[in-house]
Design a protein around this nucleic acid. Structure first.
Lengths: 206, 206
DNA sequence: GTATTTACGGAACTCATTGTCCACTATCCT
DNA sequence: AGGATAGTGGACAATGAGTTCCGTAAATAC
């Protein structure tokens, strides 16, 4: 069992520190937040902070456990569905857009500053694992030995992260389903046709 | 004329500061570099630094002028070429891979640390401008009013940056032409087929 | 070539933050 | 209840950010 009975006090203060960081995130840039700020906001001694986390980054990184679980679920569910390849692929996408949309303010604060780096890196890491896993069960069989596996993973996740941050910067005006559909159309058609001949000339007539 | 005759001494010290930062980049993380370090490395007074730049970030950002010019050239050249849509599209890609490959050590140092953020953001900005410009002359006509213009820009640039950093992390083993080809195949086919029906079922037989 | 303008150096100073330490207290666990 | 564990708040040295000032050096203007 992974739960090694941690003292309630520890759990409490850790939660308070997490919440404090999230609160501060909405008020100021991540970089300008100091350990003192966090400790004050959490009503906790500064030395207490160091008893649990080694740095701001450490604290931030530790706050991405739930998200991973959520996305893994969604992926499993999508893969288990019937339907075309595109319907079942990239199952994390919609869930991620929705999650980000629901916590829009937080995410936008995250993405904005330089501190977004850690957050985005964490998310990127989670998504990379998902995509990598998904591709081993699908893409590989269809397109063996053509483009390095990991290149496709990075391509897809990079594109996704870019669309996600763009969407958030735009105040998430488009409904999640729409962005999701657009992203996946771009991505899936790009990924699964690389063995085919190039597309025809551009249809200027219509 | 944009050159407002700047004192030679200024030009010299600015160059020395730039070089100093680049040197230090190879030795230590961007975050751990201090203004003092830069000034020392450049053999310049610390106050002199502040006479020219307001911060480390400011200095770093100012070091991306040449790159932009190079990439714009490449794009123009590629667009002027004859050939298929894919051949002419995304003309910055190969140039960027080659530039990064030639200055591999520097780029890898840039990408590695957290300070890469500023560098990567600068590059991302440059590339976004290029792609946006390119799409207004091509993509728009082919796929009007379907996916927001800017979404495609972000999608492409995000994917590119991800592939680029992955490639650099891998010590740039693949030749630039290869990565370029792979990236553009993924990107172009993904971008220019969004009006067409979905791809056929996966060819498991072969 | 001289005068004027501009940049440089370097020290001094203020301020904010980090990270560590310690003795004391509060809380939990069983 | 009593030992273990966690939290408190203050003191501490160390580091770096910016700013200011003034004497000196170098470039530019004419």
């Amino acid at each position: 069992m992974p739960t090694e009975k941690i003292d309630r006090r520890s759990l409490r203060t850790r939660a308070m520190l997490r919440d404090a960081l999230i609160s501060l995130f909405q008020k100021m840039d991540y970089e300008t937040i100091t350990i003192t700020d966090i400790a004050d906001q959490a009503n906790v001694g500064r030395s207490t902070f160091y008893a649990h986390y080694t740095s701001k980054d450490d604290l931030l990184r530790s706050s991405f456990a739930g998200l991973r679980a959520l996305l893994v679920d969604q992926q499993q569910e999508a893969l288990a569905r019937r339907g075309s390849f595109e319907d079942r692929s990239l199952g994390f996408s919609l869930a991620m857009f929705e999650h980000a949309g629901n916590h829009r303010d937080l995410y936008r604060a995250l993405v904005a500053g330089r501190g977004g780096t850690i957050a985005l890196t964490s998310i990127r890491q989670i998504l990379s694992d998902l995509v990598r896993n998904e591709l081993t069960t699908t893409y590989d069989k269809a397109n063996p030995h053509f483009v390095p596996h990991e290149l496709v993973v990075q391509y897809v996740v990079g594109a996704f992260m870019a669309v996600l941050t763009w969407w958030l910067d735009r105040r998430a005006e488009l409904p999640p389903e729409r962005v999701d559909a657009m992203f996946r159309k771009l991505a899936v058609q790009g990924i699964f046709r690389i063995n085919e001949p190039p597309p025809p000339a551009v249809p200027l007539s219509n």
